[in-house]
Design a protein around this nucleic acid. Structure first.
Lengths: 254, 254
DNA sequence: CAGGCCGAGATCTCTAGACAGGTAGAGTGC
DNA sequence: GCACTCTACCTGTCTAGAGATCTCGGCCTG
């Protein structure tokens, strides 16, 4: 048969995708509901399996449905956290001994830290210049993952210049109340200014794996640089967030 | 043949995708270069066309490759703009009569405005609550698109309460030096505080169309709310950015 | 030399069928 | 009532082939 513009000027797989999409938008299928299966759609539209699969792959890559092998195709939900970029780093917060992250969760949902690892590693090239150390020089790296309702929503790797944090609680797995910023302050390296750089792209295979992302979800990359009063860099924090789990917020004066 | 784990524990299409991916990362194919075509890959790996296509679709959905029908599959480039969220809205800037957007382009590349439209429209539901007007009430909407080297990288729609901007240059296509914020200030509604909310997802069909996005590129949604000194909302600006064209930056004190 | 035509080659769409492997509910046995 | 097995169903992978449609460079004409 080949292709050729179909009846309504639309390709078959586009027609099927469009029909399902508008059914979802109309609320016929709510979050978590199962869509008709491949076999149903084949019979319903009189097309081959691969055509139905292409229609479903459109919806998957748009991130509005998620296929679970052996079970079916399901409508995805969007229930993001709100991450307040500026207030959460206000110094009263970490000075008071509260964790920086408690500012993230607006509902009663809980972010838990998973698998903290602290190690001395050679500095990645991209970060060496920002930290102001020689490429390949050792830095301290704190890696951890954050789970929401058991699902990973973010992974982070903080990089500290080795001479700044050696023999401080910053390099112990549990840095104590107020987090690493409170410890940095006690060591005379209080962060006074932050820069956050944000970009977004589709995840690499490793990121998909680590955050257990369904296909069709982008990741948000945030690189935060913390500056001390004498303009040295105390930390470079590389974060990878599940885009479907976050809304970022920045509030500031003109 | 069916599937079943292949030789190296990897599926055929994954093996092909992985091979191409690492060749790209190794620099064998630079930005803009053409990859081997479907027929070449079929012959080279001894697989069916659909299998090669699935491999290429993995790379496309990762956004590292872009197919041009009739021509081939090409490696994509990533040359983003830097958008400084806070400095660019500092009041000295628009008071001095400079356009807000000149702060975006760091290189010598130029952002040009395309197709400004100003109209009175019923307020979208999502924005009504923020603006503090009745759902469906008329508001003034400024729509425009921004092009970089002829390619659209962002579209924006600013919403103003009707009573605030009626009979001001804010609702004329060309608001004059300093942009709409300077005009709002002259009308006694100078923005003194901003909130930007950021989220990210795959684009809808309309967004793909308007920004001419290749598949595999997410969009960044920024909603900026501008507050005046008496805490009323002067503007809600809904922006859609091509994620491959932007790095966002926010810099602030602890 | 400019401009249009044309064809080779590229991707895109679609078919019909097959097997692999995961899921979840029904039914069975204790 | 509980745990286990079995099975029908579902998605994932792959084949071999064919027509549609777009691109781009070469050729030919004026």
């Amino acid at each position: 048969m080949g292709s050729g513009r179909g009846a309504a000027g639309m390709l078959k797989y586009q027609r099927i995708a469009e029909e399902l999409r508008s059914a979802i938008e109309a609320g016929e299928y709510g979050p978590g509901d199962r869509l008709p299966g491949e076999n149903d759609l084949m019979a319903l539209h009189g097309v081959a399996r691969m055509t139905v699969r292409q229609a479903l792959s459109v919806l998957r890559s748009e991130g509005i449905v998620e296929a679970r092998k052996g079970a079916g195709v399901f409508v995805r939900a969007f229930r993001p956290l709100r991450r307040r970029g500026i207030q959460r780093l206000a110094s009263e917060r970490w000075a008071a001994g509260r964790s920086v992250w408690s500012a993230d969760v607006d509902d009663r949902r809980e972010l838990v830290v998973d698998g903290v690892q602290v190690a001395r590693e050679p500095v990645p090239e991209r970060i060496a210049a920002v930290l102001g150390v020689e490429p390949g020089a050792p830095v301290w790296v704190r890696r951890r993952r954050y789970l929401l309702d058991g699902k990973p929503v973010m992974s982070a790797a903080s990089h500290f210049p080795a001479d700044l944090v050696a023999d401080t609680p910053v390099v112990s797995p549990d840095p104590g109340p107020g987090g690493v910023y409170a410890r940095l302050a006690e060591a005379g390296h209080a962060p006074v200014r932050f820069r956050e750089e944000i970009r977004t792209r589709m995840p690499s295979a490793g990121e998909t794996d680590e955050l257990r992302l369904p296909s069709g979800t982008p990741v948000i990359l945030i690189t935060r640089t913390a500056f001390t009063a004498d303009s040295t860099v105390a930390e470079v924090n590389d974060m990878v967030l599940d885009a479907a789990s976050y809304i970022l917020e920045y509030e500031f004066d003109a």
